[in-house]
Computed example of a mutant assay.
Amino acid sequence: MDDTDDFTAEDVLIVVDPQLDFCPGGRLAVADGDAVMAPIAALAERFRHVVVTQDWHPAGHSSFASSHPGRRAFDVIRLPYGEQVLWPDHCVQGCAGADFHPDVAGAVARAGLILRKGADPAVDSYSAFYENDRATPTGLAGYLRDKGVRRCVLVGLAYDFCVSWSALDARREGFAALVLTGYTRAIAIPAGEGSSVDAAEAAMRTAGVSF
């Protein structure tokens, strides 16, 4: 059976960071990222439960390359909580780039929860469930349990970072997790002998995430 044919009231659609800065023309643009926005809005109509996440960084966030003199975007450094990719300044609170893409407005309107993440200036937050210290919860798991959710269906940006980390943490919290790859796009930066996509997919498969 096609997993997309059997959505139920025990499923939640988690739309990860459908924001202008992650789309072409944005400060951390994901190639073709805007192409998934209208399809995600249509997909949301099939779900009783919808959650949308929103990167919401203060200016000067520790994950910005501009906060580390001599460093460049996509360098990897070690912060107190572990390795951190340094990013171009993006999704700064109150700036236009932090806004949702207009084509995803239908999904945003259906959302029972809009979850802002990455607001702690000292800790990044890829996952919808935990900050990057892997210890500080966002509260999403409890919200979903209260709604009777058993499976998280994940879409949005970017596949190899915020989507994959959210899927891994959904499994960590005991939910089934399904990533709809046609509704995501990846940053795809070099990582070890492969790319960030290879690393993300290997981790998700090990954790029991479905695709």
Rank of each mutant, 00 (worst) to 15 (best):
S125M: 07
D75V: 03
V123N: 00
A176W: 13
A29G: 13
L20A: 14
M37F: 06
D3S: 12
G192F: 12
I14H: 01
G112N: 07
V104D: 02
A176D: 15
F129Y: 15
E45P: 06
D5T: 13
S63Y: 03
D198T: 08
C152K: 05
E173Q: 15
S67V: 02
C152T: 14
G142W: 05
Y143A: 13
D3W: 14
F161I: 05
T8Y: 12
M1A: 13
G112Q: 13
F7H: 13
C162D: 07
A199V: 12
D169H: 14
G192I: 08
V155G: 01
V50C: 03
A35S: 15
L113R: 10
V92W: 01
L43N: 01
G139I: 10
V30P: 11
R150Y: 03
V123H: 00
E83V: 00
S210V: 13
E131P: 00
V52G: 02
H61M: 04
G194M: 04
D17P: 07
L113Y: 03
A119P: 00
A98H: 01
F64D: 02
A176H: 15
L168M: 11
A207M: 12
L140S: 13
D17S: 06
E83I: 00
D198Q: 03
D75I: 07
F64S: 00
G82A: 10
R171P: 15
T53L: 00
D89S: 08
I14K: 01
P88G: 05
S125E: 12
C95T: 15
S196L: 05
G97S: 09
R110M: 04
A109P: 05
T4Y: 10
H57L: 04
F22C: 10
R27G: 03
A200Q: 04
R71P: 01
S164V: 03
D75A: 02
A170Y: 12
G60D: 02
S62E: 11
R46D: 13
L180I: 14
R151F: 14
L140K: 10
K117N: 06
G139L: 10
A73P: 10
D160S: 01
A41N: 06
A200F: 01
S66C: 01
V153G: 03
P190K: 06
L154P: 07
N132K: 00
D21Q: 09
F211D: 08
S125R: 00
E83L: 09
A177H: 14
F74P: 00
A186N: 09
R116E: 09
A73E: 12
P190A: 06
Y143M: 09
R134F: 13
D21F: 06
M37N: 08
R145Y: 11
G156P: 07
L168E: 08
A200G: 04
Q93W: 01
P190I: 07
I77V: 15
S196K: 03
